[in-house]
Design a protein around this nucleic acid. Structure first.
Length: 635
DNA sequence: GTAGGGTTAG
């Protein structure tokens, strides 16, 4: 019925699309001579079959040619020009051949063209079928052509394909790809009887893509059957939306059901373990990779390198990196950044040089690793050199993170004026984080005057963030300017700021134990505090005295000591001492930076109890061993 | 005679 319409329903933006006659010009010879096409090994077999068809005189047989197109549509690397040239040899293309050409277009670089071809189908009195719409909607999704897609939807309704599960699924996918998840939901809810696992997965992916994790979970709970794609969508949904624990929990549930994960799931859960610093969990995933005989692909290898580096096992990370059968730029980036986070600056720079010598071209992230490596190891002249190199030689655009590394490097090394100059010369308005970095350096160098200026500026910029008050107050505290400490603290209370609670976690006996300062919630709290006492006595005997300048409160010295003694990482270390064997390494992850006193205490604990303690703080790793820290007190 | 959903890494 559509073919009889004088004008097609669709109003395509023709100026951007091909001439419709292009598709149905019905030439009897090839539009593009076979010999002029560049050789593509992946379609060689199809070409050979094509040649056979021509040689055997079946070139004009529409059925053979239709099948040839169908096979070309299956190959992802077929150049569209080649498929088109075959299509154009058919004098009267059937719907079958036309559908397969739409399918070829859907996979091509110009999927939007498929609507023109569709329009030609209508003009040639061919009646589209369910296959036509599946391919056409797929093409509209790829082109993010919502306007054309919506018009195609009206045709679907008029032609009565609303109950075809393939067409419905393609519609749900189209709307979610074009950020119209409410429309996806409407299609999903209409004809509710007509659903299969793909329908549910498409709706699930739609909510995930839109960040509606709650709705996605509801769909996931309600779906009558789940396949590996349902699980991978849900796990990735959690992880990509920052719900790391939920992602790991979902993975665990999947494993309990006896399902085999795919590579994407494994990479995602490795990433979640890495972000949380959960070494035991990461190791478990690694053992699954091995036991299921997954090949060590670039993605899996990179995820493992990243996980071990972020969980404190830099040696294991290096070993895996060097044994990777193949690496890509991300593998190198992960390794360079990993080395940098462990303070192995020189090693990171040496690896970067090897990377260049092997012919790789660095990207923005590579330089974040390189500049971080310089900053964490105090390599000032190297930092200046690479900062220049990235723009002048590699033409990489400077981003806020690069400035962040440079400001940190310069100001911490004492070149505060140079850092200020760098910020002031920036073309884009500087992120307050840059000033906050400078403020941190002012604390290290005891620059009260500049710190005061920057601190007040930051407080004015964001009066609700407590971090700026804390930093400024600790600058005053270090200078023993208690009146100012009290004033800033009072201001902080008056402004009703949002306090970021500090926490530390430790994995032990298959569980994650998280502590906050002064925490008494843990089931073994009494023993933990007893252990804290023992630790305190033993390290005091060895010559430790508390560094309490980081304590804000205008309280007595003794009380200050108690406050730092109960910092979250002390509680985590004490718990670690309770539950691990003598000589075992204790691994802690915390969300804030290590305070000066805890850093000193950790060094002493490592010596007195002969324990290696590895702390991942907000910005880097600290390996405490035999009374020393890998950061050499430079952090 | 043709079909669909999910790809990770600082």
């Amino acid at each position: 019925m559509f073919a009889k319409r004088p004008k097609p329903l669709l109003s395509f933006p023709k100026q951007q699309l091909s001439n419709p006659h292009f598709f149905f010009s019905t030439p009897t010879t090839f539009h593009t001579p076979l010999s002029s096409l560049p050789p593509r090994p992946s379609i060689n077999q199809t070409k050979q079959a094509h040649a056979q068809i021509i040689v055997s005189g079946l070139g004009a047989n529409a059925s053979f040619t239709g099948h040839l197109l169908a096979s070309l549509a299956l190959s992802p690397s077929t150049p569209f020009a080649y498929s088109l040239s075959i299509f154009q040899t058919i004098q009267y293309p059937s719907l079958f051949a036309s559908n397969n050409l739409i399918r070829c277009l859907a996979k091509s670089e110009s999927p939007r063209e498929s609507v023109v071809l569709y329009s030609c189908i209508l003009g040639r009195n061919l009646i589209p079928n369910n296959h036509t719409y599946t391919f056409l909607l797929q093409a509209c999704s790829k082109a993010l052509a919502i306007s054309e897609g919506t018009q195609v939807h009206t045709h679907v309704v008029k032609l009565g394909f609303c109950e075809d599960v393939f067409v419905r699924n393609a519609l749900i996918h189209l709307y979610s790809a074009c950020c119209r998840v409410e429309c996806s939901k409407r299609v999903f809810e209409e004809n509710g009887h007509c659903r299969d696992v793909v329908t549910w997965n498409s709706m699930l992916a739609g909510f995930v893509r839109d960040g509606r994790i709650g709705d996605a979970e509801k769909v996931f709970d309600e779906m009558p059957e789940r396949d590996v794609i349902s699980w991978s969508t849900m796990i990735m949904g959690h992880v990509q939306n920052g719900q790391l624990e939920e992602g790991l929990e979902c993975f665990k549930e999947m494993r309990e059901k006896g399902l085999r994960p795919n590579e994407a799931i494994l990479v995602t859960v490795l990433s979640a373990s890495a972000q949380m610093g959960l070494l035991e969990n990461g190791r478990l995933v690694h053992s699954i990779v091995d036991s299921l005989n997954f090949p060590m692909t670039v993605s899996l290898g990179t995820a493992l390198v990243d996980m071990y580096a972020k969980c404190g096992c830099i040696e294991q990370s290096k070993l895996l990196f060097h044994n990777m059968p193949r690496r890509d730029i991300s593998s190198w980036n992960a390794m360079i950044c990993g080395l940098a986070s462990h303070g192995l600056g020189k090693e990171a720079l040496a690896l970067f040089e090897r990377f260049i010598n092997e012919g790789f071209h660095p990207v923005s992230v590579t330089f974040i690793g390189v500049l971080n490596a310089c900053s964490r190891a105090g390599l000032v002249s190297e930092g200046r050199h690479y900062f220049k190199l990235m723009t002048e030689k590699y033409d990489i655009e400077l981003e806020m993170e690069h400035y962040g590394c440079m400001v940190d490097l310069l100001s911490r090394a004492g070149f505060v004026d140079e850092a200020v100059e760098l910020i002031e010369k920036m073309q884009a308005p500087p992120d307050p984080v840059l000033w906050a970095t400078l403020l941190g350096a002012c604390k290290i160098h005891g620059s009260v005057e500049l710190g005061e200026k920057i601190g007040n500026k930051l407080i004015k910029l964001d009066p609700t963030y407590d971090g700026h008050y804390v930093q400024l107050a600790s600058i005053y505290a270090k200078a023993r300017k208690w009146e100012d400490v009290v004033r800033v603290r009072r201001l902080m209370v008056e402004q009703n700021t949002n306090k970021v609670a500090g926490w530390s976690l430790i994995e032990a006996q298959g569980r994650v134990h998280q502590f906050v300062a002064g925490d008494r919630e843990h089931e073994r709290s009494l023993e933990i505090y007893k252990m804290l006492e023992t630790i305190g006595t033993r390290i005091a005997e060895a010559g430790y005295s508390p560094k309490i300048s980081s304590v804000l409160h205008d309280i007595g010295e003794e009380e200050k000591e108690n406050v730092v003694k109960e910092h979250s990482e002390r509680l985590a270390i004490a718990y670690g001492m309770l539950v691990t064997k003598v000589g075992d390494c204790i691994r802690i992850v915390k969300n804030l930076r290590v305070c000066e006193d805890c850093h000193e205490a950790s060094k002493m604990i490592s010596m007195v109890f002969d324990r290696e303690i590895i702390v991942r703080d907000y910005s880097r790793f600290h390996h405490f061993k035999e009374g020393k820290c890998s950061c050499l007190d430079y952090w």
